[in-house]
Measured scan of single mutants.
Amino acid sequence: DDVELRDGDWRVELKDADEEILRAVEEAIKNGASEQELRELAERLIR
């Protein structure tokens, strides 16, 4: 699993992620995405 989400800690570690993925995830976090939404976003972007 390349995506690590810690309970109560919104730092997201994406291994080997490019800047576009990181920006998309950071934007989702700023917009108040839930953990499930972040997982789905990350899975779509990593593929």
Rank of each mutant, 00 (worst) to 15 (best):
E43R: 09
L41Q: 00
E43M: 04
D1L: 13
A17K: 06
I46D: 05
V12I: 09
R44Y: 01
K30E: 08
Q36L: 10
D7S: 02
E27Y: 01
E13M: 14
E26T: 10
E20M: 11
E26N: 07
D18N: 09
I46L: 11
A28E: 01
R47G: 14
G8Q: 07
R39D: 02
L22Y: 06
R11Y: 14
R6G: 15
W10A: 05
G32A: 02
W10M: 06
R39E: 04
L38C: 03
R11T: 07
D16F: 11
D1T: 09
R47S: 15
L22F: 06
L5M: 14
D7C: 04
E43Y: 00
L41N: 00
E13C: 14
I29M: 15
A24S: 07
L22H: 09
W10S: 06
G8N: 14
E35F: 05
D7R: 01
A33R: 05
K30A: 12
E35D: 12
E4C: 03
R23T: 06
E20W: 11
R47A: 09
A28H: 03
R6S: 15
A17N: 03
D2Q: 12
E40Y: 02
K15M: 15
S34M: 03
E13L: 15
R11F: 15
A42P: 00
S34H: 03
I29H: 09
L22A: 05
I29Q: 13
R23M: 10
A33T: 05
L41I: 06
E26D: 09
R47M: 08
V12H: 09
W10T: 04
E43W: 00
D16L: 05
E13D: 12
G32T: 01
E35Y: 07
L5V: 14
L45A: 08
E43S: 07
E27A: 09
E4L: 12
R47F: 01
I46G: 07
E20Y: 08
G32M: 02
G8Y: 11
D18L: 09
I21M: 07
A28W: 03
G32V: 01
E40A: 14
A33D: 02
G8R: 05
E20S: 12
E26M: 09
D1S: 13
E43N: 07
A17V: 12
R6K: 10
L38D: 00
E19R: 06
G8T: 10
E4Q: 14
L41K: 00
A28S: 03
E4K: 14
R39I: 09
E19H: 08
D7W: 01
I29S: 13
D16E: 06
R44N: 13
E4T: 09
E35A: 11
L5I: 15
K30C: 03
I21A: 04
Q36K: 13
E20T: 13
A17I: 09
D1G: 11
L38G: 04
V12C: 03
R47H: 14
D9F: 01
V25E: 00
E43P: 04
V25P: 00
R11M: 15
D18K: 08
A24W: 08
A42L: 15
K15T: 10
K15P: 05
R44E: 13
A33Q: 04
E4G: 15
E19L: 07
D9T: 00
L45G: 06
V12Q: 08
R47N: 15
I21P: 01
E37M: 08
G8L: 13
A17E: 05
E26Q: 07
E27I: 11
R47Q: 15
E37I: 04
L14E: 02
R44H: 13
K15W: 07
I29G: 08
E13K: 13
R23E: 05
V3K: 14
R23K: 13
E43F: 00
L41H: 00
D1N: 13
V3A: 10
D18I: 06
R11H: 06
L45Q: 05
R44D: 12
V12W: 07
D9K: 01
A17P: 03
D9A: 01
R39Y: 02
D9H: 01
R39V: 07
